[in-house]
Design a protein around this nucleic acid. Structure first.
Lengths: 369, 369
DNA sequence: GGCCTTTAGATGGAGTCCTGGATAACTTGC
DNA sequence: GCAAGTTATCCAGGACTCCATCTAAAGGCC
């Protein structure tokens, strides 16, 4: 049916246990061997063996022991977030943003290049090159030293990293983004839709850290969605999951128009916040349309959580409650509703997470032979 | 994030390898040790060890060797589908159907009891008891001998096996189905929504065997959906996944009405097949509404496959092509569309599969200590 | 009947994990 | 400052699983 778990060699068992140890150290505070052993379910002796090996490859570091407490002080070990670095690139209509993160998702360097939606293909690719080269330079890294690189862009992306269809960017359909970047960066490159990786970012460093099933809504002048199901990014068979906006009844094609119609593109959110009746009415129409599509997603998946991101999420204070009320009208069980805090970096961060997820299994396996 | 894979003991490795062997034997034809070893990725010697153990617990049987061929004839081993039995019960508005299947999903015994939607709670439960007792008697099994029992019913079901909400059946909301059946059957009982398990049945014995992502549509006087994502049944956080019908814009509440309106409930499908214009028009309106909801599911999930089941699927020949055409209007990529062949047994079969999926991990683990 | 091919079965070795005991380091109480 | 108590580290010995390899067995083919 699906890709099941294979057993195999004895070394496979060690690999699984090493992964367990890494997970615990990554997701929780530094631990002593005794704590680790309990947490992972191994004996102390075996845990020591595993940690020793992880120390040698540099993925785990020893800390100074905790002061106080009775008995011989235990060594404490922590996840080494700086054991590897990831490149995440957000290729949007108005900006190209490249970030370098560590394995924990902390952004250490970033480089932004302004672009416009109308820019031609080669100019946009040049902006990508500029951002990537810039961020690599300030990090003092070469592409080969990276664990991997992820690229996110608007539009549908196929399995090989080519843009199948992009309506928002000119001359962008058909670009072989993965190929282009692979030539620049040298290592492995993965390409994905921007909404999808933004969802990933929320489960990594955002407001959806412990949610197994989550829907991310990109709310901006474009509207989109990304799905996390069972803790993993859901792509769909043709990489087109979350495209509920294509359905006219979902209201997403029409939704931003209500805001755009308001007084020549002034800040409708600020006006509504200040008590402007017309602005509030426009916003209400926007929310009504937005909620149709979200309800369809929620009723389909029944997620634990819905996260609102995108440009409008900054102003979510003025429409979050109306949105919740509107969802209550349609949903059998309205999920918890949260606003993204990742701001403009969400997509780039998600691209980095994509690269981490795709590269680390191989890296684990390769390390043990 | 999610329940990750734990490593552990050495016996855990053996367990994983035994599961791999079982999967290969179950999904493919009988195999020799050499074939098995290659397929599973173990050495011949270890495979022999594993198979020996599986022979001893009775989950695998030896066959007479294949005739012909050069070299010493190899022993061949097969999956023993009769190593265990499952009870699946479909509690519907018009019938209660209980089946006994083997581990392969072959139905060996079944017992149907006619009911009506208006029946009271205790009468319906009595019908369940009658069907279950009857099918157990004809199978010559007691409840304790079963690997597990699954029950499917209309309405939302909570995690403990209680019916949270059922609109189609009177006095059915709040019934503790799991508790009731546990008293009768003795073993472990799982309860789930009927659309959901019908989806499961399609991936087991139906037309969706190798699909990882699949949407099942129950098309009948009620309309519902069940989702399989990543090879597993998707329940949702509140067990309410697939309830797109709750959204008025999805059209499912209105859809069957077009057919019901046609000439006092005559067979609209047969009439349309015979060329009746009015019947065809009613059917067309039905399909238009049905397609709205399906499109929402498809655009959300981008599944590999959509399976049409339920009472109307018998007459799918008259509306499958119009449905496909309608889906083409809305979907970015219309998935493959198939018609269920499980007929009336789909839900009961799915309930049995639910019991198998829920019980076998424990059974694997318990067997090795 | 002898040869060839393939499988069955047995043996020794390596890797991983567990248990239990001896040793080490630090705190507490006197 | 020293002994007692507590906890951690370190070091076998033993069990389990897998692998490589070798010999014996069972067929077909000449």
């Amino acid at each position: 049916m699906t890709a099941h778990l294979n057993g195999g060699d004895l070394s496979r068992l060690r690999q699984l246990n090493a992964e367990s140890v890494m997970r615990v150290l990554r997701d929780e505070r530094p631990q002593t061997l005794t704590e680790l052993a309990q947490r992972v379910g191994l004996s102390r002796a075996s845990t020591e063996d595993v940690v020793q090996e992880l120390l040698e490859v540099g993925w785990v570091a020893e800390m100074e022991p905790a002061a106080g407490g009775v008995g011989r002080p235990a060594r404490r070990y922590r996840f080494r977030a700086d054991a590897g670095h990831l490149l995440g690139v957000d290729v949007g209509g108005h900006k190209v943003l490249a970030v370098i993160t560590d394995l924990d998702g902390t952004v250490w360097h970033s480089r932004q290049v302004a672009v416009t939606p109308e820019l031609g293909r080669s100019e946009r690719l040049a902006a990508v090159d500029k951002a990537v080269a810039g961020v690599l330079r300030s990090a003092g890294l070469t592409g080969e030293e990276l664990w991997g690189a992820g690229v996110a862009t608007t539009g549908l992306v196929d399995g090989t990293g080519r843009v199948m269809l992009s309506e928002a960017l000119t001359e962008w359909t058909g670009v072989d983004l993965a190929g282009h970047l692979r030539d620049r960066v040298g290592g492995a490159v993965w390409v994905e839709n921007d909404c999808k990786v933004a969802a990933l970012a929320e489960t990594w460093r955002g407001v959806a850290r412990h949610a197994a099933d989550m829907v991310f809504i990109l709310a901006g002048w474009r509207t989109g969605a990304g799905l996390v199901i069972g803790g993993k990014l859901h792509r769909g068979f043709g990489n087109a999951a979350g495209e509920i906006g294509a359905l006219p009844a979902a209201g997403w094609q029409r939704a931003p128009g209500h805001l755009r119609a308001w007084l020549h593109d002034g800040d409708v959110f600020a006006a509504s916040r200040a008590g402007d009746k017309a602005a509030t009415a426009a916003l209400r129409r926007y929310v009504k349309d937005l909620a149709q599509g979200i309800s369809a997603l929620v009723l389909t998946l029944d997620p634990e959580l819905v996260v609102i991101g995108g440009g409008f999420s900054r102003s979510a204070d003025v429409f979050l409650e109306p949105l919740r009320a509107e969802l209550d009208r349609w949903c059998l069980r309205t999920p918890e509703l949260r606003v993204s805090v990742l701001a403009d970096e969400g997509v780039a961060l998600g691209a980095a997470k994509l690269a981490l997820d795709m590269s680390s299994p191989q890296r684990f396996a390769r390390n043990r032979d």
